[in-house]
Design a protein around this nucleic acid. Structure first.
Length: 424
DNA sequence: GTAATCACG
DNA sequence: ACGTACGTGATTACA
């Protein structure tokens, strides 16, 4: 929660007034309550994880120093670059960063790891160090003495699209993608033994929004029929039966579905998949043939931005795009991608904000003692008293799925557990 | 203070 | 030919 002058700049017309008065200001109370409530953390569990990580990090260190023939700071991209590309000369023409240093970014090292086992150890070392320093070691220190809980700050005026951001500590980027990282989520636990954690997630909300805004019938139908959208996309794009879609086809369709929201290029797609640039271009072309209105919609957003200097969400939240008519094609291209992406990402933010306000009001009006704790862009996390679980679960699902009516249904998946990982 | 890296949606 | 997917925050190294 942070109210700044920033808000005031755009209060010119009635629609923006409504966004301000009916969403952002009511949300202030909701966020304040969530921040003050905090979340319970299992400190002992994190200390155990820290010890495990330390042991594994030491083993990796020894392995890396052995191959390098010397000890050095693995966390220093500069020192690591010298070892890999000058001392060991792993490649002829190493990729450089924009400041002229050797790039040791994840994709570069992953490529090298195929031929050099110890490079995988460097990646593992990085991964474990990150987990330890950013989460396992840091989180226990952020427990507030007076409440014994962790209290994040939500910022309402940072993200250009209308999303919230979270800091001190950031609870919107707790690991989940790797097995080792997921363990951190086990440290987020209910208030006490009378409570459980409940996590409620919007499924594919951004893709549903782009389907609704573009009025692309083929995609709308898939959602209305409750289909697996990535498999459905694959079936249409590759012209096969839904049941014959291979894992690879589904995976590539999924990457395009996500990419489309960001304004992907053939180059970007080929970087994210095993496809060549040519294959990527063909796939994108097929995609637009499958969903023709999507391309029309995207072009219309760019045109609107050129004419008006901004784009807007379903609640008329604006993002101004000063570079939309830039003579520099790179700069203009970035603004054009923003013109497509901001209404999608921002409308999703609008919808979950409505849901949060409505759920909070119902909890108040209906006298529940369960609490909303966290928002992670398309997810809400609650501390639910066991006696209230049966009555509260359908309320959360209803309020989230019906926060905003679109031609495409919204779908919310709910999980319950004795920690945040289990609740997923 | 900035760059590089990497955690999330 | 160009450069190359949207939005954030935290940590570490280093000038």
């Amino acid at each position: 929660m942070q109210l700044k002058n920033h808000f005031t700049k755009e209060l010119k017309d009635a629609k923006t007034q409504a966004l301000f008065n009916d969403i952002e200001i009511p949300l202030l109370r909701v966020l304040a309550a969530m921040e003050l409530e905090g979340i319970n953390l299992d400190k002992d569990f994190l200390n155990g994880l820290a010890e495990d990580l330390n042991n594994d990090i030491k083993v990796l260190e020894a392995k890396i120093y052995d191959v390098a023939g010397e000890e050095f700071n693995i966390a220093s991209p500069k020192q690591l670059g010298l070892i890999l590309f000058e001392k060991l000369k792993l490649v002829d023409k190493p990729k450089k960063t924009k400041t002229g240093q050797y790039s040791t970014a994840e994709d570069v090292l992953s490529f090298l790891a195929k031929d050099h086992e110890f490079v995988q150890s460097i990646l593992d070392y990085r991964g474990l160090s990150k987990l330890k320093s950013t989460y396992v070691d840091a989180l226990p220190n952020q427990i507030e003495d007076s409440t014994k809980r962790v209290h994040t700050d939500y910022m309402q005026t940072v993200a250009a699209t209308g999303r919230l951001s979270s800091n001190n500590p950031n609870l919107q980027n707790i690991p989940i993608r790797t097995e080792r990282g997921r363990q951190v989520r086990k440290a987020f636990v209910p208030r006490d033994e009378n409570y459980v954690l409940l996590a409620a997630d919007y499924s594919q909300i951004e893709l549903r929004i782009i389907a609704a805004l573009s009025k692309e019938e083929n995609m709308i139908k898939a959602f209305q029929n409750g289909e697996d959208i990535h498999a459905s996309t694959a079936a249409k794009v590759f012209n096969v039966d839904l049941k014959d879609v291979t894992r690879e086809q589904r995976s590539n369709a999924k990457t395009v579905n996500f990419g489309i929201i960001y304004g992907v290029s053939a180059f970007g797609l080929s970087n994210q998949t095993d496809l060549t640039r040519k294959e990527s271009k063909e796939l994108i072309d097929l995609y637009y043939e499958t969903y023709p209105k999507l391309r029309n919609y995207m072009a219309a957003q760019v045109d609107f931005a050129r004419d008006n200097g901004y784009v807007e969400t379903i609640l008329k939240r604006r993002r101004y795009l000063k570079d939309i008519n830039s003579r520099n094609a790179i700069v203009r291209g970035a603004a054009e991608r923003n013109a497509v992406n901001a209404p999608i990402q921002g409308s999703a933010a609008d919808i979950i904000k409505i849901a949060m306000i409505n759920i909070f009001r119902r909890f108040e009006n209906e006298g529940f003692i369960s609490k909303m704790l966290l928002q992670v862009h398309d997810e809400l996390v609650f501390d639910v008293h066991k006696n209230e679980l049966d009555s509260i679960k359908p309320i959360i699902k209803y309020e989230m799925e019906n926060a905003f009516k679109m031609i495409v249904p919204l779908n919310v998946e709910i999980g319950i557990g004795k920690n945040w990982l289990e609740a997923h």
